[in-house]
Simulated scan of single mutants.
Amino acid sequence: MSSEPRTVTLPTSDRGDVTIPEPDWCTGVHEGIHYYSDLGHDGPDVSLDFRGHRVMDACLTQSPFALRATRVPQISITVAGRALDAAGVYEFAAALDRYADQLRDLASQLDAITSGGSQ
């Protein structure tokens, strides 16, 4: 096993192919051609499914060359809405309780990454 950091070479429209470090938590999925400042890393999604529908996703994310946003790892949370009756809201709230535990685990992973632990 190599002790060298993992890297990935990606096409950019403003700098051609660039080789950048790839964090251990990144899925390695990088699609399309982007500007250098738009290159980023995403971890695997932690999803909340409710009644057979995807409601929410969260993942570790980083834009290490961003010009306007932070360059440090963060957690991206995407929410899609739906209308529910009272019973559905209670059911949804229970699903959110379970999902909150997953989000706390993701936050702990982010704490370890940003405090100098695992990449």
Rank of each mutant, 00 (worst) to 15 (best):
Q119Y: 09
T61S: 14
G43Q: 01
S47T: 14
A95Q: 07
E31C: 05
T61K: 11
D105C: 06
I20C: 05
L48H: 09
A66I: 00
D45W: 03
R98I: 04
V79W: 13
S47E: 14
D45I: 01
Q62E: 15
Y99C: 05
L84Y: 12
I20P: 01
G116E: 09
D101N: 03
Y90D: 15
I33T: 15
A69F: 10
E91A: 15
E31F: 03
H30A: 06
A95W: 00
G52D: 02
D101M: 04
L110K: 07
I33L: 06
S2E: 05
D49E: 15
A80L: 12
A100M: 07
L106N: 03
R54T: 09
A66Y: 05
R71S: 01
R104K: 07
P5N: 10
S63K: 13
T12E: 08
A100V: 00
T78V: 11
Q102K: 12
D24T: 13
S108P: 03
C26Y: 00
G32F: 05
V46E: 12
I33H: 08
A107N: 06
S115Y: 01
Y35L: 13
H41M: 02
L84E: 15
G40C: 01
R6D: 12
T9K: 02
R104D: 14
A87L: 12
R6S: 14
C26M: 00
L48A: 06
P5W: 00
L39F: 00
A66M: 05
I20Q: 02
P21A: 13
D101P: 04
E4K: 13
Q109M: 08
L84G: 07
V29P: 01
Q109Y: 04
G43L: 02
Y99D: 08
Y90M: 13
D14N: 11
L39Q: 02
G52Q: 04
E91K: 06
I20T: 08
D97L: 10
F50I: 08
G81S: 13
H53Q: 14
L67F: 01
T70Q: 13
G43M: 05
P23T: 08
D111V: 08
I33D: 11
S3A: 13
T9W: 03
A86F: 10
G32T: 02
P73K: 01
V8S: 01
D57Y: 03
E4Q: 14
V29C: 01
D49W: 12
T12N: 05
T12Y: 02
A100K: 07
L110H: 06
D57K: 09
D101C: 07
T78Y: 07
A80W: 14
G32N: 00
S115P: 01
T12A: 08
A112R: 14
G81V: 09
G16E: 03
R54G: 14
D101K: 04
S118A: 14
G88S: 09
D14L: 00
P21R: 04
L110D: 04
V8Q: 06
T12G: 08
R51I: 02
R54F: 03
V18T: 05
R68K: 15
P5C: 03
E4S: 14
H34G: 04
S76F: 07
D45Q: 04
D24M: 11
Y90T: 14
R6H: 10
W25F: 03
P44Y: 05
S47C: 07
